[in-house]
Nucleic acid binder design. Structure first.
Length: 464
DNA sequence: GCATGATCATGC
DNA sequence: GCATGATCATGC
């Protein structure tokens, strides 16, 4: 007890101790501190680093730095301070932007236990009220003690985002109450998710209280978009910047309510009329003009980073044009594939998985028979049905495998899969991106098939 | 008519 | 300069 370099009962003492790691590695700081105290050897039983596993850094942090026994207890890691310790790996993209690599897995639960809980006395709240997040640069070539820590700070999810976290928690519990634990999806919720565990996914089947159907065991997690948002917020607070702190929603207001109120004045108006009303330029040469009108109405900057809730929930904001017969002509594109990234990703931590399990808000512009111009028809919410995820996974896995093999010519086509395909998406055919092989290839991205958008989004609304 | 490849204004 | 969110153009 007494040889700890921090006070176990004090959140601020533990955080101060954790922040000594910032911009350093665990081994560096341990060495400095041991030298200072004149300690030449240690009796602490550090984890032997044989094989790097998921969670390995977190265990090393807990034992080698905080001097604790790694355990699986259901209480927070620092019980006296009611503080949970979590390590979150970072990665650096090809444009040098630093992003969180994986969603953050929190406590596991059984459906039977969770069925009986109320939020205020929930195990989730008990364990995750105060989380000390340690963000570190994951590098598979390095030992845990050599990986650089970038940021360590406290995140109090209920203090920051109580309404949404409560609502997400309740959404998950309500599915258990309804005997639908087997239908739980990460797309049901915005910040807090209920995720399956990758490795044991196919064997971990559990009973649920209100149905005989077995369901995959799950854990709470901060969805990838939310943990990235937390990382941005904490980084900005550290730099005393406050860009992201403006809330989009009033308390208890839903996205759809807020969005409908913003769009109401423009419903039924043609695109050029909307621009006139808003004193904006209407440029027919702009291929994204409908999307740009929608985004300007919302008051976004490009990546939502001025709108707290959009950023936190990683909302997919899309605009579709609909023809007089109720059809759309185009597939839907996503970000370019980072060839160097995808080969190291796992499906459930990939950008594309994150996108398809996010909420979609879709602005629909429509054209009637005899009209040349599209008018703003409505704004809808949508999410991809969980039973279709495996199709997206097939396309993603096929793409990852082909990139790993250096085959950039035979990605899946629109006719190869009912939901998704790969297509070019660059400035032109000379717009290239580096590959793991060190070569450069045409920029391409995942697309959701036009036929799938037609069937799942448009037919339910426009089919006569 | 549709699948596929190519392209472009915008905003940061 | 570049990613984004799309639409356009071509050829079968």
């Amino acid at each position: 007890m007494s040889d700890l370099l921090y006070n176990e009962e004090s959140i601020s003492s533990i955080i101060e101790y954790a922040q000594r790691l910032e911009n350093k590695t665990i081994d560096e700081v341990n060495f400095e501190q041991n030298s200072y105290k004149g300690i030449t050897s240690t009796t602490k039983n550090y984890i032997v680093q044989e094989k790097k596993t998921k969670g390995g850094f977190g265990q090393y942090l807990e034992t080698a730095y905080f001097g604790k026994e790694a355990d699986n207890k259901s209480q927070p890691d620092f019980p006296a301070a009611k503080l949970e310790l979590k390590a979150s790996p970072l990665k650096t993209l090809s444009n040098f932007e630093v992003k969180v690599k994986e969603r953050l897995v929190l406590n596991h639960f059984t459906f039977t236990d969770l069925d009986k809980e109320v939020f205020n006395k929930s195990h989730f709240k008990y364990k995750n009220d105060n989380i000390l997040l340690v963000f570190y640069h994951y590098n598979k070539e390095q030992e845990y003690g050599q990986m650089k820590v970038q940021l360590a700070d406290l995140w109090q999810c209920l203090k920051e985002d109580e309404v949404q976290i409560r609502s997400d928690w309740q959404t998950i519990v309500d599915k258990i109450h309804a005997g639908k634990a087997h239908e739980i999806s990460e797309a049901d919720t915005l910040y807090l998710g209920a995720c399956t565990k990758g490795a044991t996914k196919d064997t971990n089947w559990q009973v649920q209280p209100h149905s005989d159907i077995k369901a995959q065991g799950r854990a709470f997690c901060f969805k990838l978009g939310y943990i990235n948002h937390i990382f941005q917020i904490l980084t900005q607070r550290k730099e005393h910047r406050q860009i992201l702190e403006t809330r989009f929603l009033a308390k208890n207001e839903t996205f759809l309510e807020k969005i409908n109120s913003i769009f109401t004045p423009y419903i039924g108006k043609f695109a050029n009329e909307i621009c006139k009303m808003r004193n904006e330029n209407y440029n027919l040469a702009d291929k994204s003009r409908y999307a740009n009108i929608s985004r300007r109405i919302m008051g976004f900057n490009k990546d939502f980073s001025n709108l707290y809730e959009f950023n936190a929930a990683d909302i997919q904001f899309k605009t579709i044009r609909i023809e007089p017969n109720g059809k759309c002509n185009e597939s839907m594109s996503f970000k370019n594939i980072e060839y160097c990234e995808i080969v190291d990703e796992e499906w459930e931590d990939s950008y594309f998985y994150n996108a398809i399990t996010s909420k979609f808000i879709i602005v629909l512009f429509k054209r009637n028979e005899g009209q040349d111009e599209y008018y703003l028809d409505r704004v809808i919410e949508w999410q991809i049905p969980v039973e279709d995820y495996h199709y997206f996974e097939e396309v993603w896995t096929d793409t990852k495998n082909k990139v790993a093999l250096g085959d950039y010519e035979h990605f899946m086509k629109i006719s190869d899969n009912p939901v998704s395909h790969i297509r070019p998406k660059g400035k032109n055919a000379d717009d290239l991106m580096f590959t793991p092989q060190g070569t450069q290839e045409k920029k391409k991205c995942f697309w959701i098939n036009q036929s799938y958008i037609q069937e799942k989004i448009l037919n339910p609304i426009y089919k006569k």
